[in-house]
Simulated scan of single mutants.
Amino acid sequence: MADDQILKLIGIRIRDLRKERGLSQEQLGEKADFHFSYIGGIERAEKNISILNLAKIAAALEVHIGELFVYIKSHHNVHSEKEAELEEILQILLEQDIKGLRKAKTILKELYE
């Protein structure tokens, strides 16, 4: 994958997550401690963002940094809707400790086996 394609995908993903949360570029910039023009530059793939700055943006968006590398449009068809639901479930599970994960696994097995 070309470098500029990676920047475009990350920029699109950040924009999509920002819009899903109803944030403007200025609001996201304030939350992440960046100027809104920097956020715009990232979203337009004009900035080569560092890992540390990606972590700040992920925290401001209240997602795990790995979510910035999941290039899924969460609308348009049933498959994407299913993926969006799975993403939400995964986010809940990622916030759990091992005891919580085991409890979730037990519940799922009871429901679906």
Rank of each mutant, 00 (worst) to 15 (best):
H79K: 15
A58F: 14
I89P: 04
M1C: 14
K31V: 01
G100Q: 03
D4I: 10
K99R: 13
N77C: 14
L52V: 15
L68T: 13
I42R: 07
E88S: 08
E30L: 04
I10N: 09
L61T: 07
S74R: 09
A58T: 13
Y38C: 04
R21P: 00
H76N: 12
K31Q: 06
I42H: 01
E81K: 12
L52M: 15
I42M: 04
D4Y: 09
E26K: 03
E20V: 04
K105I: 11
V63Y: 01
D97Q: 06
G29K: 02
R102T: 01
L93T: 01
S24K: 06
Y112V: 10
E85K: 14
K82S: 09
I6D: 06
L101K: 12
L68S: 06
S50M: 12
I92R: 04
N77P: 09
E30A: 00
E62S: 15
H76P: 00
A59C: 10
A2H: 02
R102W: 05
I98R: 13
K99Q: 06
A84L: 15
Q27H: 06
Q96R: 12
L7W: 03
R102K: 08
I98C: 02
L7D: 09
E85A: 15
I72S: 07
E88G: 05
E67W: 11
E81W: 13
K109D: 14
K103M: 11
A59K: 14
L52R: 08
L86M: 15
E81V: 06
E46R: 14
S74C: 13
I12Q: 09
Q91N: 09
E43L: 06
A60Y: 04
F36D: 03
V78N: 08
H75R: 05
A58L: 13
I49Y: 15
N77A: 07
K109Y: 13
A104W: 06
V63Q: 07
S80H: 10
I65V: 14
H79V: 13
I57W: 01
E26Q: 13
G40Y: 04
L23Q: 05
K47P: 14
E26G: 08
F34T: 00
H35P: 03
L61C: 10
E95R: 15
R44Q: 14
E46G: 11
K103E: 07
D97S: 07
K73N: 10
I49K: 14
I6N: 02
A60Q: 05
R102F: 08
K56F: 14
D33I: 00
M1K: 11
D3S: 09
